[in-house]
């Protein structure tokens, strides 16, 4: 799995995949995509990258990304709590329009919630795969 070709492909794929994931995340509210899908795309790309570039012995020492899981939960729950602080029920979302005319950008706290979902999915998927890849001892 450590061939030169795979390494080159993986090196090219990772940034593209991450950009694509961000695109999916941003448009998720209006078109297919969203936090779950974007998270899975990123995970798949990171795993491919790791398989191609990292020797088995190093895999065990890869930093765990469990922090991203916590952060994601915090962001998602925090988004809901903002609404509570503002006096509404938990997880009530707010919407804002920035700019005017054709340049209007629609912003919403739903995106923030989706970012939380994204972080949890990325974190848990990669952590899981890394946990199995680390500590080689095939029997």
């Amino acid at each position: 799995m450590n061939s030169f070709l795979l390494r080159q492909v993986a090196r090219g794929v990772l940034p593209v995949a991450v950009l694509f994931a961000i695109y999916l995340l941003l448009r998720g509210h209006d078109a297919p995509g969203g936090g779950f899908v974007a998270g899975l795309v990123t995970s798949a790309a990171v795993v491919l990258h790791a398989l191609a570039n990292v020797a088995p012995s190093e895999r065990a020492r890869r930093p765990r990304v469990l922090g991203s899981v916590w952060l994601g939960l915090l962001v998602a729950a925090g988004t809901g709590l903002v609404a509570v602080a503002a006096g509404g029920p938990f997880l009530t979302h707010s919407h804002f329009d920035v700019g005017s005319g054709p340049a209007t950008i629609h912003l919403s706290t739903t995106l923030l919630f989706d970012v939380g979902v994204f972080l949890v999915v990325v974190g848990s998927t990669i952590t899981t795969l890394a946990a199995f890849a680390g500590g080689e001892n095939p029997r």
Binding site: H29, T110, F113, V117
Partner: peptide
Amino acid sequence: AKGRNVVNVILVDFRGADTL
């Protein structure tokens, strides 16, 4: 919810607590 992808709107808004 100002969203056109209803599946996503359900996930993050209508049933957000479920998703959490």
